[in-house]
Design a protein around this nucleic acid. Structure first.
Lengths: 217, 217
DNA sequence: ACACTATTCCAAAGATGATTGGAGAACCAT
DNA sequence: ATGGTTCTCCAATCATCTTTGGAATAGTGT
């Protein structure tokens, strides 16, 4: 086979994408970027990384063309290169969760006790019929970058102080980044503890966008 | 954040799947396994790896639960753990091909000059109307593990000797493993050089199966 | 020009992964 | 039991990736 070398070269090229996905830190960065573009500094802080470490990981992602950059003054904003990347990221998480028992236990440890969930269709139904108020508990920048139409932005850390804004007699549906995001879980627990009726969207903005449901900006 | 450690742990778990996909050799193994189950020895030979090296890579894939095994006497057969894994693999290749120019050139170098392709729908149309003969140019074991209904098995290395079996006045459509498989390209070139009208299925058995089209065994 | 901010580049250290040959384990046949 | 086959485990070597601080670069504001 003279093809051997060419075949190896081709698959080694495929592996560049695999290598980019081969680090928990980089997956955390992709998770953040799946919500909105961000500067290196913001990414480093959110992911709990040193600045140079974050920069190095971002370079790795950039060399695999999974992320793209934009300069604004002295700042450089990173964003996902496309929705195909978001899809790949989401599928990787799903496969991991379905196949690896350790992922499930790590997820349970991180998200805490399970809370009531509604599907995307349920959420749409409840909003249309005026039976529910939808709150987006992500940081405001992420809400600004795109959210479920009609949702109100109440970042998790402001939720306790802003309870008065929420109707007491209506169900509240909270959502956040995606299937493995802790914010909506915490929000539901907080609301339930305060006597409200609250559920969370089973997944989040990432899956909503990939399902091509309407997004408001 | 006390969540920091739990979050890191969760994403490190996701990364196990990423790490499994982070080697060209392992991706070659997945490519082979996407067609049919195989023994370690057969995989090592097909992928051009030493036996112990292949075994080590397979252990890595197995620890990520992307593959499963079955014992038969002294032989151990590896197979993909599920179609979700095939989907992840296919998406990774697609993203790589769409995003990385180096992948495209490696692909072109491996597959050779481009040949006429037909879509899955076209193939179905042509077969239904009796306008085309479909040949499966993969090794016979892979044909046996599942093929397009109505296709004839003529492995590429037998094709030159078995031209007589193919109607001279009809178009021939060749297919093989998937979008990056060289066999159908070689088959079309061979047939065209012998004066036949030949095209290839644009992708292959992997995508056919994932599209949930009928598969014969 | 100068100071200042945000980010990347570089080099060194430590950590992790790949490959290999040889020994060991599981199974089959005689 | 013995020998043969197939595969995994182990240990050593080598290669690659991660993380870090410090220097370099690109851009902004004075």
């Amino acid at each position: 086979m003279p093809d051997r070398d060419a075949k190896t070269a081709l698959f080694d090229q495929f592996a560049r994408v695999g290598k980019a996905l081969a680090s928990g830190k980089r997956l955390e960065l992709l998770d953040l970027l799946s919500q909105s573009e961000r500067t290196v500094d913001a990414l480093a802080k959110s992911a709990g990384l040193g600045l140079t470490t974050a920069s190095a990981h971002l370079q790795t992602l950039k060399q695999a063309n999974l992320v793209a950059t934009r300069r604004e003054g002295t700042k450089i904003f990173y964003r996902l290169a496309g929705d195909d990347v978001a899809e790949l990221f989401a599928l990787l998480r799903t496969v991991a969760d379905d196949r690896l028992p350790d992922v499930r236990s790590a997820r349970e440890a991180y998200l805490g006790d399970d809370t009531d969930a509604v599907s995307r269709e349920d959420l749409l139904d409840r909003v249309r019929s005026g039976r529910a108020t939808v709150i987006d508990v992500r940081p405001t920048e992420e809400f600004a970058a795109g959210h479920i139409p009609g949702a109100v932005s109440i970042p998790l850390n402001e939720l306790a102080d802003r309870l008065a804004e929420l109707p007491a007699d209506q169900e509240i549906v909270a959502y956040c980044r995606g299937a493995f995001c802790v914010l909506s879980h915490d929000a539901v627990r907080l609301l339930t503890a305060r006597g409200r009726t609250a559920r969370r969207l089973a997944d989040g903005m990432l899956e909503w966008r990939l399902a091509e449901l309407p997004v408001a900006v």
